[in-house]
């Protein structure tokens, strides 16, 4: 079972990294979401795996799984929603105001760019 979890995290991470390296905003956002899954599951799994041992106290039950990673991951899940939403609005702003959803700056070399045309009446 540990192998399944580890490989699932690996697959999510690899897919996330690949998507983050794409050139458009939307795949990059998807990539960060995938990475968020991977990171959350990673953190959760760092408390080690346990089946049928939820950290809810019961009479006579002695075995509980580690509650701390769960608490940390719970807030992380909610925060990652906030983060995704912020990134999405930034991407939307760029797209709506510049018709551009490329993540790379088009001009790599600022010095090589041709001089701006002089505004009319200023010459």
């Amino acid at each position: 079972m540990e192998l399944l979890i580890a490989s699932a995290i690996g697959v999510l991470t690899a897919a996330g990294i690949y998507m983050i390296l794409r050139l458009r905003t939307f795949p990059v956002i998807i990539g960060t979401s995938l990475l968020s899954y991977a990171v959350n599951v990673f953190l959760f799994a760092s408390g080690r795996l346990a089946v049928n041992a939820p950290p809810v106290l019961r009479e006579g039950v002695e075995r509980y799984t580690d509650p701390l990673p769960q608490a940390l991951v719970l807030t992380a899940i909610v925060i990652s929603f906030g983060m995704t939403a912020v990134v999405v609005i930034i991407a939307l702003g760029a797209w709506l105001s510049c018709d551009d959803d490329m993540v790379d700056t088009p001009r790599i070399n600022a010095e090589a760019r041709p001089p701006e045309p002089m505004p009319r009446g200023d010459a």
Binding site: G10, I17, A45
Partner: peptide, 18 residues
Amino acid sequence: IALAGGGAAAALIYVILL
């Protein structure tokens, strides 16, 4: 790059889990 990253994450958590 992605496979290297994914492989590293998987290996790390596998070791932690064990």
